[in-house]
Design a protein around this nucleic acid. Structure first.
Lengths: 336, 336
DNA sequence: CGCGTTTACGTCGTTCGTAACGATA
DNA sequence: TATCGTTACGAACGACGTAAACGCG
């Protein structure tokens, strides 16, 4: 058994059981990959793939087990290389982050700008997706960090560092009736208008629906989208009242939109940054965590890494110690 | 990075940083090992060992980290080989067990006899040691199962399957005063005699001392040994009253010794069989667990493997469902 | 006939073992 | 001088790439 054979095996799996594609991805010849797979199967004495003629048509039960183990092995070799690199190439490397649109568009820009200033030679890869896709990416691809909100159960096996909390904000076209209430917004107010908000697959988002239900209200959601930019576009078109994460309520929107704070109407959400428990964090990665969650101290991070359960980690942070990110303050219409 | 380089690296570590010894253990030439180590260090760009002249004199901080990762990798390659072997060589393989003297001498013989009957081609390796040594063996050497009593904290990272419970038995020379009590034995009775028992490092053994203390008694322990055979030998010599695990009270001892049951005097101990959470269990290994802990069903074993915490596993077994192993019944002097 | 895999074969790099050398106590 | 590690070198092996054949849709 050779590391390369395992690497090729995973490449084949990750390229839809297409050996040719796998070979290209590995920058090598197709017969080479084919042969190594054959050698591996011969050495182990079992078929890893189901053949259909000459093509690979599926993965055998044994194959799945071997593949899982091979992934662990390749991850550990990566870890060894990482920690080696950390000893002599402090400033070089790459950082791959998987996250949702809201983070990528509204939260990360400032943080990444600062990060680039400190580590100009580190390559950055930003991957976007739903919570499910993010969970998939961090287990199968080489992603260093996942950043998401709620849905902790999707990310078992990761260490999740609670980073900040946020409320929803209500976005309306300039001069909308709701801006003239003269009192604090209520759910009843919102229920009277057609609503535009996130699709529910998004993390703790069903908590929005539940908030209405708790008051016996049936919200009239006319449109859902995955990201706040789309939502705001439709709000501008007068399609309805938008409910977005408050970070997405940008000062730049002020020309056409107005933002009404919605603190207290919906439960506060907590966004965390997560990484694999068995991953080696290079120094610049630790720095990134600290940029994203500045309230975390070095000693806390060490405690976190020693922790065995997620509850233990959450226990390290008083909920109300976490910073709260708000909307662009200029644009908020406060309660009377 | 090659698997062989990592294998050699571990061999060097496991042979006291002696490359020559490592090479012999690997059935290869010494220069080969030396060279592969050098290549590995060059590729990683760091020193894994502290040199003193040409000799290896210690492990660097980076080295420790690499070694830990390398162990994971080698374990996973073993796992792949194991599960491959399980698919085509059901009947061949080896089983390594690390356990204490009591298990090896009094409990395992019957089980191993039965196991050999079913799997005559499986090689058996029985390793003996203290709890600490067993914990060490199962993390560093290639041990499949640990069998021990109490001391669960030493074995974090293992899955421990509670297997049976047992009480202590009191062993005295034939005709000893204690055999003529005509009533149930008490701790007060025992405290009046010099005692011979296990050294306290042995698992939950300090519970013995505590049992006396709870009644305000100071036991007069004149002699401690690691195994019951030694203890019984000294009891035969008249050195004192022996307290041993009831399994160790053998019918064969009846010529010179008498056994007095001591149920209720000391807390019951639970013996478990443990294996690495990340290990692949070959079919014969699963059968071994079932022989050792017959109350465990196949579906329970699957649940156990899915469990994430030891408490979860313990919850699967009602304490009083576990079988209790007793002394040789013929030899027990019951209470009047 | 195109797509994808396997077979065949020549080349090149790597590993391994032997032998000689170097350093250390 | 015995022990342990490194260097040197030739032989064997293994991986890789090109070219060609095969099987399938």
């Amino acid at each position: 058994m050779k590391l390369q054979q395992l690497k090729y095996l995973l490449a084949i799996v990750d390229n839809g059981l297409n050996i040719t594609a796998a070979a290209e991805r590995m920058y090598t010849s197709q017969p080479g990959v084919s042969k190594q797979l054959k050698l591996l199967e011969e050495e182990l004495g079992l078929q890893l793939f189901v053949r259909k003629g000459k093509s690979l048509d599926g993965i055998t039960a044994a194959g799945h087990q071997v593949i899982d183990r091979a992934r662990v092995i390749m991850r550990e070799t990566e870890n060894i290389r990482s920690l080696a690199a950390d000893y002599y190439q402090e400033e070089e490397g790459a950082l791959s982050i998987a996250t949702t649109h809201t983070q990528a568009r509204y939260v990360l820009p400032d943080i990444i700008a600062e990060f680039r200033k400190r580590f100009p030679k580190i390559g950055l890869n930003l991957h976007q997706g739903t919570s499910e896709q993010i969970a998939d990416m961090i287990t199968n691809n080489n992603i260093d960090f996942a950043i998401a909100t709620g849905s902790k159960d999707l990310f078992a096996g990761l260490i999740l560092v609670p980073s900040y909390r946020w409320d929803r904000a209500v976005v309306v076209p300039k001069g909308h009736e709701l801006t003239k209430l003269g009192r604090k917004l209520t759910l009843q107010d919102l229920a009277r208008y057609p609503l535009v908000t996130y699709v529910f697959s998004f993390g703790g988002q069903s908590s929005l629906k539940r908030a209405f239900e708790n008051e016996g209200l049936e919200p009239d959601v006319v449109f859902t989208a995955r990201d706040a930019d789309v939502i705001k576009t439709y709000v501008r078109m007068g399609m309805g009242v938008g409910i977005v994460a408050s970070m997405a309520a940008d000062c730049a929107d002020q020309k056409e939109l107005q933002v009404i704070g919605a603190e207290g109407l919906f439960p506060r959400s907590t966004t965390w940054i997560g990484f694999r428990k068995d991953a080696v964090l290079r120094r610049y990665m630790v720095e990134f965590v600290k940029l994203f969650a500045p309230h975390v101290t070095t000693s806390q991070l060490e405690e976190i890494r020693r922790a065995t359960t997620q509850d233990e980690i959450d226990g390290l942070f008083e909920q109300n110690e976490l910073p709260v990110r708000g909307a662009c303050v200029d644009s908020i219409i406060e309660a009377a």
